[in-house]
Design a protein around this nucleic acid. Structure first.
Length: 333
DNA sequence: GTCCGGAAGG
DNA sequence: CCTTCCGGAC
């Protein structure tokens, strides 16, 4: 590595000891179950959001064997509101794989961990470094940002080839020892100092050897911009004798496995299915990765017989035990 | 409104 | 190589 960077790992390690985070609930343990659970939750989700979910998961599923034995539906209920529900499906599948293949013990190398559902290269490396001290690099969003700035890495990370090059640089930067603390230090730097906007370069332990510090916000370079579309649907909120009609969403697709109101393409087909006096509710705007979803909830409290629609009539007081997507949780208040 | 973030499947 | 998956912070 370049002479200027020979000190990089030691600096990050020293900084982590004094200024890093040490009291997060998934730290101070080498239990792969706890580390794995936190890493999956922290994919695409911020620490403050994860804290409550993490505590509830551990309380309900203290071990991977208990998670493996639970029905998927219950896992989804506990996950509801976190988003990216394939993570929950993979979490459950991974727990069952660990229970079946390894007797409830996680495999102890990044290469083996990466074969499990929902565990990619970076997550495998994080678990292996934290739990087994393996000398292997992670490259999550925070670390991509830190390293691309330190290196002034000009490759476009939208390209597989350039991303591979950054992986190689990340591996070359690994210190000889204390890779667990180094890994935590990179994560902490990205979360608290080398932030996406307005990085605090003055507080950075490696600012003097950072090639990108004077144009930090130029990095990481990623050209691919997603094109967003717009969808519009009508949501039928039917109540009958204190029960609400819910339907389970098919997999794959948006909100796979979660429970929602019957969905219609237009108001006319909703009216045809409902058959009764309808109360239109304020529209809900929900942003997903690749489209903006406009939902029109329409409510009907039925006095006579309920229409024959597919789904499950759920007593209002039991709604909390169903896996509901965030906007529906909000709608039911 | 705009931005952010890993893995799987095609 | 591309697309698919959410919700919250700012």
């Amino acid at each position: 590595m370049p002479e200027a960077l020979s000190d990089f790992g030691a600096r990050v390690v020293a900084w982590q000891k004094r200024h890093g985070r040490h009291e997060l609930p998934w730290q101070n343990t080498r239990d792969p179950y706890r580390v794995w659970l936190s890493e999956i939750m922290l994919q695409q989700t911020q620490v403050t959001t994860v804290l409550g979910y993490y505590a509830r998961f551990l309380e309900r599923f203290p071990t991977v064997l208990e998670l493996a034995a639970a029905p998927l539906d219950e896992v989804l209920t506990l996950w509801a509101g976190l988003g990216y529900y394939s993570r929950a499906r993979n979490l459950h599948a991974c727990a069952q794989a660990v229970a079946a293949l390894h007797g409830g013990a996680f495999p102890a190398s990044a290469a083996q961990l990466q074969t499990l559902p929902g565990i990619g290269r970076s997550t495998a490396a994080a678990i292996a470094a934290f739990c087994f001290g393996e000398r292997v690099a992670i490259l999550d969003g925070n670390v991509k940002r830190v390293l691309s700035r330190v290196l002034a890495f000009d490759g476009d990370l939208a390209s597989t080839r350039e991303e591979k090059r950054l992986w190689d640089r990340a591996t070359a930067l690994l210190p000889a020892r204390e890779v667990d603390r180094y890994t935590q230090g990179l994560m902490d730097l990205g979360a608290t100092v080398c932030t996406a906007r307005k990085p605090d370069c003055g507080a950075c332990p490696v600012n003097d050897l950072c090639a990108g510090q004077h144009e930090a916000e130029r990095y990481p370079i990623k050209t691919r911009k997603l094109k967003r579309s717009r969808r519009e649907n009508w949501w039928l909120w039917l109540e009958h004798e204190g029960r609400v009609l819910l339907q389970q969403r098919p997999a794959p697709g948006v909100w796979a496995g979660l429970w929602t109101l019957p969905l219609f393409d237009d108001e006319a087909s909703l009216r045809a299915a409902a058959g009764g006096p309808l109360e239109p509710l304020p529209r809900i705007e929900h942003a997903l990765t690749h489209f903006d979803w406009v939902l029109h909830p329409v409510r009907a409290v039925l006095r006579d017989a309920a229409p024959a629609l597919p789904g499950t009539w759920v007593p209002r007081e039991e709604l909390a035990s169903y896996a509901l997507p965030a906007p529906l949780k909000k709608l039911f208040g």
